[in-house]
């Protein structure tokens, strides 16, 4: 039996996705369920602050390749620098040609164009990933070097490691804190999931991103539902979200009120559902619905 994967995404950052995901973890643990936590929000991997993971295995993660110029072969012909559209190639103070790894896009044009094959593309170690223990169960997470970008590949890898572990230890669920945005990492996070919970905040830009996230889930045929976080700050937008769910036939999971308690819990590194009764009440129903759908499939 393959483990069931429950993914939380939000589109826009700062909607409280991690608050909701950590509450789900807390709730599932309280029910006595076994699961693996996978933090795919690698840009701002905040789950570990609440989960306090203790790593027992870690490995390097190799991402995009960037150009590297071999100074012994380089004839200073300047062709590469003229062609590069990312302004990544510069002449150092000592006159040698160098590549700014932050700017290099890995496009290979310089490598193709170099008349003396002095340039090669070298894969970069962009971060590390970890297998850890937490009070709630095992956790797979990653950390990127500053300036490195999250990728679908890294998300896939984190999920893959979670699946390997789940299958080995016969753990039935994987809870994924998904990446922000609507790009490739999100597609990777949704692909293969049993359920996608879209966390929406009642602000104009968050609604727009929520729609994009829903479309992606629809495209992959993954069951999904919408949950409003910070309810009460804009009733008009909240109605828009509910209306959207209604018209599109998407299960509406519930709404979490905007309270000072959530902020205070966060400051104390506590999980919102554990510290705030209002939040717990609102989320129990939503979480129950999620498990119901997941176990039907």
């Amino acid at each position: 039996m393959s483990p069931k994967e429950i993914v939380f995404i939000s589109g826009k950052g700062g909607t409280g996705k991690t608050t909701i995901t950590s509450s789900f973890v807390w709730w599932l643990h309280l029910k006595g369920e076994k699961f693996i936590i996978a933090d795919a929000d690698v840009d701002a991997a905040d789950m570990h602050i609440l989960m306090e993971p203790r790593p027992w295995k870690e490995e390097e993660f190799v991402g995009k390749s960037v150009a590297q110029i071999n100074d012994e072969l380089c004839t200073y012909c300047d062709i590469c620098r003229g062609l590069c559209r990312f302004d990544a190639i510069y002449i150092d103070e000592d006159g040698t040609y160098r590549v700014n790894p932050f700017r290099c896009d890995g496009c290979t044009l310089c490598e193709i164009a170099c008349p003396v094959q002095a340039i090669e593309m070298v894969p970069q170690v962009v971060g590390r990933w970890f297998l850890s223990r937490t009070p709630y169960g095992p956790m797979v997470h990653a950390r990127l070097k500053p300036g490195a970008e999250n990728s679908g590949n890294l998300v896939t890898m984190v999920k893959h490691q979670a699946h390997l572990l789940a299958e080995k230890e016969e753990i039935p669920y994987i809870v994924v804190d998904g990446p922000p945005g609507i790009g490739c990492p999100v597609t990777s996070a949704i692909s293969g999931a049993s359920f996608v919970a879209v966390v929406a905040e009642p602000s104009f830009s968050a609604i727009h991103d929520m729609e994009r996230a829903v479309e992606t889930a629809e495209h992959f045929g993954v069951p999904h539902g919408i949950l409003i976080n910070k309810a009460g700050i804009n009733p008009e937008n909240e109605e828009k979200i509910r209306d959207y769910a209604r018209r599109r036939g998407i299960p509406f999971l519930g709404e979490v009120p905007f309270t000072r308690c959530v902020v205070d819990a966060l400051v104390k590194r506590e999980i919102a559902a554990s510290s705030c009764e209002e939040v717990r009440g609102a989320l129990e129903g939503a979480f129950g619905k999620i498990l119901e759908v997941v176990n039907e499939s």
């Binding site: 701002a44 905040d46 602050i49 500053p146 300036g147 966060l266």
Partner: peptide, 20 residues
């Protein structure tokens, strides 16, 4: 922001500006 999340994200961006 003065929260644990805020502090963690701040430490990442501090690393970045130091690198630059």
């Amino acid at each position: 922001e003065p929260t644990p999340f805020g502090l963690h994200d701040l430490s990442l961006v501090v690393e970045m500006v130091r690198e630059l």
